[in-house]
């Protein structure tokens, strides 16, 4: 499973989020990898899921992409909860 952590310039916020998403995937036992990317590139990059702050997810959303909004980028419990809510395999 490919997950993209997305932020404005793809360097700071999304990298930090990707670290925590990878930790969460491991703890949930999901076979997947999270990489980070800037918003403009992410628009044309395919992935199973996209994760980031709500306003970034709104800008990325095209009706087809599966987006996961997170408020707290460092709270592992919140990230796990959001993954569980959005990814059927994450039970």
């Amino acid at each position: 499973m490919k997950i993209l952590a997305v932020c404005g310039n793809g360097l700071g916020t999304s990298f930090m989020l990707s670290l925590n998403v990878n930790k969460a995937l491991k703890e949930l036992g999901i076979d997947g990898e999270c990489k980070n990317m800037d918003l403009a590139s992410a628009k044309t990059e395919s992935a199973d899921y996209y994760i980031g702050s709500p306003e970034i997810m709104e800008q990325l959303s095209d009706g087809k992409k599966k987006v996961i909004p997170v408020i707290n980028m460092v709270n592992l419990n919140e990230i796990k909860e959001m993954l569980r809510t959005h990814i059927p395999e994450a039970k």
């Binding site: 932020c7 404005g8 310039n9 360097l11 700071g12 916020t13 930090m16 918003l39 980031g52 702050s53 306003e55 970034i56 800008q59 408020i71 707290n72 980028m73 460092v74 709270n75």
Partner: peptide, 22 residues
Amino acid sequence: SNVKNFGPYIVLMPEVAMPHAR
């Protein structure tokens, strides 16, 4: 301008912001 263009995604969690650019 990052925040103006993309929104307040630099707010990493409630009450904590990490302004940055390239």
